[in-house]
């Protein structure tokens, strides 16, 4: 949410241990920008460095922030977003998504991937749109699901 009413989306990246995360995050950033939604990436240092190195010209990545800084700003009511996408492949990801569901007014999308995607999806006990795909190295199954999600995001933007 910004003063000029430009829509914003927070993309929350966890541990970058699973290869598809960085690729899909860049793809999501691109899709959001095409739809006129400004993406802000929050993540661990390693997750952010992977994004920086993958996009040296900053064609896709614009604002990035530390995970704790983002949570601080939202809990202190200094900032919030229209949409929030949380990348999840472990229990910590579920915990962060649950926190976002509680502290933020953003429409929440959980993108669950990795070997245990279905199992993790069963742990979701808070309001959000759930996308769960067993994807580790090949991003295509998650990309197909994400394309559907970005249609929802575009609809909810209007």
């Amino acid at each position: 949410m910004t003063e000029n009413d430009e829509k914003t989306a927070l993309i929350l990246l966890g541990c970058p241990q699973v290869p598809v995360q960085t690729s899909m995050a860049l793809y999501l950033v691109h899709g959001l920008k095409q739809r006129g939604i400004r993406p802000v990436i929050a993540g661990t240092t390693a997750a952010r460095k992977l994004m920086e190195v993958a996009d040296p010209g900053r064609y896709y990545v614009s604002e990035m922030t530390d995970l704790d800084v983002a949570i601080d700003e939202i809990t202190e009511k200094q900032r919030d977003f229209d949409l929030c996408f949380v990348f999840i492949h472990n229990d910590s990801g579920i915990a962060y998504a649950g926190t976002m569901a509680y502290i933020s007014k953003a429409r929440l999308y959980t993108l669950i991937f990795g070997e245990h995607a279905e199992e993790l999806a069963g742990e979701i006990e808070f309001p959000c749109e759930v996308v769960a795909v067993k994807a580790v190295h090949n991003p295509m199954p998650l990309k197909r699901k994400l394309d559907e999600v970005m249609q929802w995001a575009a609809v909810s933007k209007q």
Binding site: G93, A95, G98
Partner: peptide, 29 residues
């Protein structure tokens, strides 16, 4: 440190100490 997770979340008190969950993105809670 932010307490991260889905409610209910608890912070304990034992004498002069606090006992609480600390979640790391890569290593769990």
């Amino acid at each position: 440190v932010h307490i991260i997770g889905v409610p209910p979340l608890y912070v304990g008190v034992e004498g002069e100490d606090l006992i609480f969950p600390y979640t790391k993105p890569c290593h769990g809670t």
